[in-house]
Design a protein around this nucleic acid. Structure first.
Lengths: 183, 183
DNA sequence: AAAATTTGTCTATTATTTTAAATGATAAGT
DNA sequence: ACTTATCATTTAAAATAATAGACAAATTTT
């Protein structure tokens, strides 16, 4: 079970040195070094302490470790994309629903200042996630309010009521992905 | 990190005795006993062998273990996102898709000029799609070559070989979404 | 009911990990 | 060039986990 490389990637992504991580996790620098180089099979307890310091759960970590990298694709030029939004001030640019059965609906969303998705929707079963690219968006989910800034990701169950609102004074952009396709 | 109880539940559900599991996993009966009673913090390698014999992945196991403590999250601030890329020049920023409930893996990908995803990967069942935000990316899928410019979307079934390369002279950015094998 | 088998726990020994400190490597400042 | 600091790896000693086998309790077989 090789976990060293992934561990290092996570640490680096936090901008931490081995010493800094050792301080946070209460695990020795030497141990961390050996872990990252797969010179040891750390105990669950030790690994847990390290991951806690990195703000990651065991499940999340092994999900990364065990995930097989894989991908593949065909292109859809911008010109071929269509706006599926009925709302003024909101653009939902995506791939027209084709004969093929897509499991993910990818949308490039643009909200003019003050624009929202309207009343609180709830769609059918499925999940919805996305990332904020520009602007400031308020997200209501199931009675709770969250604020999205550039780089922030959201993820929720589509069955919960939700609504997006651009609360900033400039255009807001979001890339979203939903499953299954629902529009 | 208490894992003994869960481990025992899994073993019992398979109708195995400690000796039978010891035989399958090549881990001593005594060790298994101590693991189930939390008298030891097993090494990652040892736990992996045991779980393999039980037909369970590390990710799945810790999902069970952590199911009690984990609270539901909607937003994932940029600071909490992790780079899961082992490749130099390529950043894959996202939230780990805990086998838990999430069906989509959303990633913010950044390619330095000339960087590629390395060799041609291919995955299990599932789909992957995304949108190019900046730069110029060459996409190889199943022997074909496509060029992605800002705004272009790609979409394909996940069982074909694929590779991404930043062929421009500035950073390229992509937001991608893929469905896991379990979908 | 007695014997034999199977169960999980416990202990002494062995093997491995973890620690603490030393080492070398790199970069920045004087 | 010489500190001074920071970085990751390596090493010997201390701490901990894994093994093999003994043990008693529970179950099955005769």
């Amino acid at each position: 079970m090789l976990i060293g490389a992934k561990l290092k990637v996570v640490r680096k992504s936090k901008g931490l040195s081995l010493r800094a991580l050792a301080e946070l996790s209460d695990v020795t620098v030497g141990t961390l070094s050996q872990m990252e180089n797969d010179n040891t099979s750390p105990s669950v307890g030790t690994l847990k302490r390290v991951l806690k310091a990195l703000g990651m759960s065991m499940g999340e970590f092994f999900d990364i470790v065990e995930s097989n990298e894989s991908r593949e694709r065909v292109t859809y030029p911008k010109e071929n994309q269509v706006n599926v939004s009925p709302i003024e001030g909101l653009t939902l640019l995506g791939i027209p629903r084709s004969a093929r059965e897509q499991k993910i609906q990818l949308l490039a969303e643009t909200y003019k200042p003050g624009t929202s998705t309207g009343r609180e929707y709830y769609s059918h079963e499925g999940e919805e996630c996305g990332i904020c690219l520009e602007g400031e968006v308020e997200l209501h989910v199931d009675g709770h309010t969250y604020t999205l800034k550039p780089g922030d990701i959201y993820y929720f169950d589509s069955q919960k009521q939700h609504r997006f609102t651009n609360i900033g004074n400039k255009e807001a952009k979001i890339i979203s992905a939903c499953t299954p396709s629902s529009f």
